[in-house]
Design a protein around this nucleic acid. Structure first.
Length: 456
RNA sequence: GAGGUUGUAGCUCAGUCGGUUAGAGCGCUAGAUUGUGGUUCUAGAGGUCGCGGGUUCGAGACCCGUCUCCCUCCCCA
């Protein structure tokens, strides 16, 4: 016999954690629905042919692969063992746990394109798995809450995502946040502009760290990655651009000759305009030229949300992908979406103490169990309480009252109904308020009415 | 995947230079008015010192391996 333990990077969620998590899920789901998104669930695991190659080499490595069932090694030859683990993996594993919700969604869209009402708006709240190394705010199993729109290029979708975030986060109590926005086309334009066509990948990996390690280190890293001194000189504006009040003007001056960059800027300007038109006051949006996530499939807008003054990574990310379904043989369907990380949001709220006190899921009243006769009477009262919508339970064993009250106290049950010989005779039950300690004699109907209206 | 760090009771942690029977606080269980929780008092239970190997007369402590936690990098929610 061995001591039980949790698999690395996973967690249990006890009752009090679940109350908090449910609050987050409910809040997010309500907002998604308000914006017209429809629910979808997809399987926990998919064929590896669906998942592989969608997240870059790094992502492929972080995929949890499921060993084939049965005799997975029976047909292996000696040479299979010597060819390294990658070719071997494809011979012994053909399924994997989903890595995010976007790719399974794209698969769903392709498989159901004939029946879906386009543009199709779906939300999806499910766990995903990554074989990453755990850290603070980073787990190997975590939930994502995704909302995506496919089948339209309209920048209204981007603007609505901004609105959606401004609705959800304050509803959770998170008021100090920043929605960072960039556009892949601008990054492509910059790479072209400095004579490093097609190299926005390595370029972005480096400049993404600007606020973390500073300009000098970034320049150093770019040189290591093979960028010329000439390129770096032309890159100058990047380092001063991000905090300007009028970023787009400066950007246009710099990138005016790049057609694709201008397209990206134009898109961003329209998003800004739509956000204003939709009536959002004090939008917490910020253009950030160094934002460069999800480069393996984003083609337009890139989003990232950061809760300010908390030491936790981004709580949400997303963007526009023009050709995700293209990898499944159906090109030309553009999509844009956002993904919220519940586990990180939880950590942020915990750190900022933002969870509301009262849990309406908890028991409101407990009936004591003094002896067999009193228990019988209690059993007749219990269903009346429940029928009135009151969360109620009865103590199952006839043990010392002390122990029963201790139980109620520890479960934070605000009321206890005491039934003993006196109460049996008169029909006047004792209702005890556990917070104040005060007791009053009432009949069952009066108690039910009192607790039902006393809606704490 | 690379580097660093941590692990002792349910929890938070002591444990000296390697030395006899591994401790504290909190929590838990039972009692202190046979119908009353929180406070107090008393008693009790609870440990393969992460796991495996090694050094030693002797290891919680030292060495090696391994797992886990946390951190940095990579990447990401």
């Amino acid at each position: 016999m061995s001591k039980p333990s949790l698999a690395r990077g996973t967690r249990d969620f006890g009752p009090e954690q679940m109350a908090k998590r449910t609050f987050i899920f409910d809040t997010i789901r309500r907002s998604f629905q308000r914006y017209g998104f429809l629910p979808l669930e997809t399987p926990a695991f998919e064929n590896l042919s669906v998942l592989m190659g969608k997240y870059g080499d790094e992502g492929d490595q972080l995929l949890f692969k499921l060993l084939n069932s049965g005799d997975f090694s029976g047909k292996l030859t000696d040479s299979d063992w010597h060819e390294g683990y990658k070719p071997l993996t494809s011979k012994i594993s053909e399924k994997g746990l989903r890595y995010d919700l976007t790719v399974p969604f794209a698969r769903y869209v392709v498989m159901n394109r004939g029946t879906l009402v386009m543009p199709f708006k779906r939300y999806q709240i499910q766990p995903v798995w990554r074989a990453d190394r755990p850290q603070k705010g980073r787990y190997r199993e975590f939930y994502q809450c995704d909302a995506d729109v496919v089948g339209t290029d309209s920048l209204l979708c981007e603007a609505e995502i901004v609105l959606l975030l401004h609705e959800i986060l304050p509803a959770l109590g998170i008021n100090d946040f920043t929605v960072k926005i960039n556009n892949r086309k601008i990054l492509t334009g910059i790479a072209d502009m400095i004579g490093a066509h097609g190299m926005e990948g390595p370029l972005c990996v480096a400049i993404d760290k600007l606020d973390k390690i500073g300009k000098e280190k970034v320049v150093e890293e770019l040189l290591e990655r093979g960028f010329s001194n000439e390129s770096l000189t032309q890159l100058g504006p990047v380092f001063t651009l991000s905090d300007g009040a009028e970023p787009f003007t400066a950007l246009k001056n710099w990138l005016g000759s790049s057609e694709i960059a201008m397209k990206g800027i134009q898109e961003l300007e329209e998003v800004w305009d739509l956000v204003t038109t939709l009536g959002l006051e004090n939008p917490k949006i910020q253009f950030d030229v160094t934002l460069a996530r999800g480069l393996s499939y984003y083609t337009g807008a890139i989003f990232e949300v950061k809760a300010n003054n908390v030491q936790i990574g981004s709580i949400s990310g997303g963007g526009r992908y023009d050709n995700l379904t293209g990898t499944f043989g159906v090109p030309g369907i553009s999509g844009v979406g956002i993904s919220l990380g519940v586990d990180r949001i939880y950590d942020v709220m915990e750190e900022l103490n933002l969870f509301p006190e009262n849990q309406k899921t908890a028991t409101k009243v407990m009936i004591s169990n003094f002896d067999q006769q009193a228990f019988r009477l209690g059993l007749s009262v219990l269903p009346k309480l429940r029928a009135a919508g009151i969360n109620a339970e009865i103590y199952p064993d006839s043990v010392k009252l002390k122990k029963q009250l201790d139980y109620a106290d520890r479960k934070n049950i605000p009321f206890v109904i005491l039934i003993g010989s006196d109460e049996m005779e008169t029909g006047q039950l004792t209702l005890k308020n556990m917070k104040t300690g005060e007791q009053q004699k009432l009949n069952a109907e009066e108690i039910t009415a009192l607790l039902a209206e006393n809606n704490i």
